[in-house]
Nucleic acid binder design. Structure first.
Lengths: 83, 83
DNA sequence: GCTCTATATGCGCTATATCCTATAATTCAA
DNA sequence: TTGAATTATAGGATATAGCGCATATAGAGC
């Protein structure tokens, strides 16, 4: 099961969804990833200027990882449903 | 076919590989993505502080996109082979 | 070797991440 | 509804992105 992530908002929503599924607060996730609650808040609200390594650390703390794949028409059809 | 990308270096290598496969110079890719040659250079060498939106724009210029998936044991086995 | 292109590096600039601290605003349960 | 927890926001400090511009290396071909 993989989720498409083309924009910072996609990624933020995905992180928030996963964090809540795991029953974590932003502060708890921040602890696990090595960042502050405020930083998690910014990421989840779609801050486009977040540092790459910060995103990677937060994903890892949620046991997630990025995969890179060709953009596909299937994804285009799916893209509106992400929110 | 998807590629695992757990670190800025993974992502940089992937971008460089794809760019060369497409016969583009760093400057040409920069043009397509809206950034400078120097910025592409930094990304390809694994700069961990690159802005998220910059990475996303460069991936899009290469017709690539991120997917988010659970970290898997299969990935752990594969991880050493990325370089 | 030499030349041309491609890539990496440097400086000064503005913008912003993240930290730290604090607090406002929102959500949720009792 | 109220009180506690959670999330969003703010200001000052430090670090660094990406810009523009310049240049130094590095590579590929002759």
């Amino acid at each position: 099961m993989t989720d498409l992530a083309r924009t910072p908002k996609h990624i933020g929503n995905l992180i928030r969804r996963t964090r809540k599924k795991l029953g974590l607060s932003q502060a708890e996730l921040g602890d696990k990833a090595g960042f502050r609650q405020e930083t998690i808040s910014l990421i989840e609200t779609g801050n486009p200027a977040t540092r790459l390594e910060t995103i990677l650390a937060v994903l890892a703390a949620l046991d997630l990882e990025f995969h890179v794949a060709p953009r596909s028409k299937d994804d285009d059809a799916m893209i509106e449903d992400i929110f």
